[in-house]
Nucleic acid binder design. Structure first.
Lengths: 171, 171
DNA sequence: TTATTCATGTAATTTGTTACATGATTCT
DNA sequence: AGAATCATGTAACAAATTACATGAATAA
């Protein structure tokens, strides 16, 4: 039973501040919501999983008949989160997973952000190069739209490179 | 049993040219592979589903003990594909689904591409505006990385707007 | 008094991913 | 002889999405 992207997002938010599932949803909607949508159907099972694995603890409080379950990271949770922060980034799935990582970079060590950014830039450069080659290979054989798809990829990965380059300098 | 993103991609490729599952995989890897990964585990069940729904026909040929199943779109398949091409684009999931649509735009009517591009630009503009507002609202309360996440979103949606604007002009 | 916010979750379905299993043909 | 390409697919698992179900407190 290993943790997925969504689980790490939940865990990361709890590292900022212990929260209830409801509060988590509100925070996620506000911050990562534009790319990574959060739903109760994702959050509550995730909390259960994290608690079952010993990554977070749960404390229940009852006020006025209403149950409130507040979740808080345990040492094991902090450990796996740090490991996740240091892992290589997957740039292929689009900005969503990438942004989730950027969001939590403040929780990692000082060198972590630079290393992460460097990894993204390298991967984006490789992707852009590859696409330029395929574009040249397909040129003439494909219609405008198909070539546009390729061109978009090139432009997108160059945008990524530039963005992270600029960002790294400003850190 | 309604069709998903991946099913439409398969159907679209078959509209270019009747193919086998194997050929589909090769084509998809070459063209849409950078954002939308294709696997046999996705393609073959998709073909089965499309055939079962009466969207494509299958013709089997045996040459040298080897079975070759070639799939070809039926009128019903063409109809649902056209409807899919005309639907509003989902810009939230990142470039993947967007690019799948661009790739097949040549199969739609002349006005289709412009309408699509306009829709993307409008959605991207709204998203960027929304992010600017939340950025202003959160300013000071969030750390560098959290604000960067927001800034990335703004820059990304502006990149999208500019890209499609330029693209539309060149059509 | 009615709508919204706070607060919990489950169940079903869909979708995607990975790994496995098989075998002929063709190129080196 | 061995590697790569052509060609089929299934099974298991992981993940995400949607819809459903419930109910107290509070703000309009």
């Amino acid at each position: 039973m290993n943790l997925a992207e969504g689980d790490f997002a939940v865990l990361g938010f709890l590292l900022f501040k212990p929260m209830t599932g409801y509060e988590l949803k509100a925070m996620m909607d506000l911050t990562l919501g534009h790319f990574n949508r959060a739903s109760y159907g994702g959050i509550y099972p995730s909390l259960k999983k994290l608690a079952g694995g010993g990554y977070v603890s749960m404390s229940q409080s009852v006020s006025g008949g209403k149950i409130r379950k507040t979740y808080k990271p345990l040492p094991a949770g902090k450990r796996v989160f740090q490991a996740w922060l240091k892992a290589e980034a997957e740039i292929l799935r689009g900005p969503g997973p990438l942004l989730t990582r950027v969001f939590f970079l403040g929780l990692g060590g000082r060198g972590n952000a630079k290393a992460f950014s460097g990894g993204v830039r390298r991967a984006a450069r490789e992707r852009a190069e590859w696409l330029k080659r395929t574009k040249a290979a397909v040129s003439g054989k494909a219609d405008v739209y198909q070539e546009s798809t390729c061109q978009f990829g090139i432009d997108y990965y160059e945008f990524l490179q530039k963005w992270f380059e600029r960002w790294e300098k400003g850190l």
